[in-house]
Design a protein around this nucleic acid. Structure first.
Ligand code: MN
Ligand code: MN
Ligand code: ZN
Ligand code: ZN
Lengths: 140, 140
DNA sequence: AAATAAATGCAACAATGTTGCGATTATTGT
DNA sequence: ACAATAATCGCAACATTGTTGCATTTATTT
């Protein structure tokens, strides 16, 4: 139920010292209900007509949610960030899958790569960004 | 010597059935001379004042070089493609490093990940895109 | 209910890349 | 060397995604 997610969303926002505005709650509820990582545009489309937000407000709300570590965003090759709620599985580093057919992005559970990557001398490792590309079950 | 690269570039272009225009040759020579993967903008800046190209022409030349497999392009989190000449090392799949300080991108030699990634049932693997982020020797 | 800081909406801007189309040019054949 | 031709180029216009400044509104606290 989306109402359930609304409640959870509001809690999460308050626990992080932010104002529980309709916009933030709605956005986070959408991301909590979503299996995949979705774009700014897709979030906009899922918002009920009654409470459409300004583009900029949506961007800023997402920025805030990322800062507070409630969601994470994923780089893609189509120049559009995709956002996804942080669940237990995804609190740490993980890889992503992107379908080259329908452009959907899902989070993969693990990041089966050694964190100690062989870098040139003097370089310092910070993090790995890994996207597996292929076809999803629908597009196969 | 950049002239040497010009000669090589012209050869590579002709061998692929394309017209050896000053623009294409200049671009490919720049990419051959460059260690790192560089952006459209950076290529533009390296072109001699005498033969500045239209932005669109530059984009289309790069597109053609990628099609012909003479160069490859790299996705980044700043929404700008970066281009690099295909050498032996990079003809196959490989990972990239991006410095979070100065934004430089270099190609890493290997891709120490199994090509057979554990995907959900019904999904088909195509390729891996992997970027290691960190600080380069200068920015450390 | 008033005070206050946080969040919002609007307009303007920036960066990167794409498309259509007429003009130019590299290449080929004579 | 010259003409024919298709490939390439340059320009203008557009698209998408995201950012910044600032005045207005609103959630929260007192
Ligand atoms: Mn994820
Ligand atoms: Mn590379
Ligand atoms: Zn798909
Ligand atoms: Zn650096």
């Amino acid at each position: 139920m989306l109402n359930q997610f609304h409640h959870t969303a509001e809690d999460m926002i308050r626990h992080n010292g932010g104002r529980a505005t309709a916009g933030r709650i709605g956005i986070l509820a959408i991301l909590l209900a979503e299996q995949q990582a979705i774009t700014h545009r897709e979030i906009e489309q899922r918002l009920p007509q009654a409470q459409q937000l300004d583009r900029v407000t949506l961007y800023r709300a997402l920025e805030w949610l990322v800062e507070k570590n409630l969601i994470h965003k994923v780089t893609s090759d189509d120049r559009a960030w995709r956002y996804h709620a942080n669940r237990e599985l995804h609190s740490h580093q993980h890889a992503h899958f992107k379908c080259t057919g329908c452009a959907q992005v899902i989070c993969l559970d693990k990041l089966p790569v050694e964190a100690n990557w062989p870098l040139p001398a003097g370089y310092r490792f910070q993090e790995i960004e890994l996207t597996v590309k292929g076809l999803c079950a629908n597009c196969c």
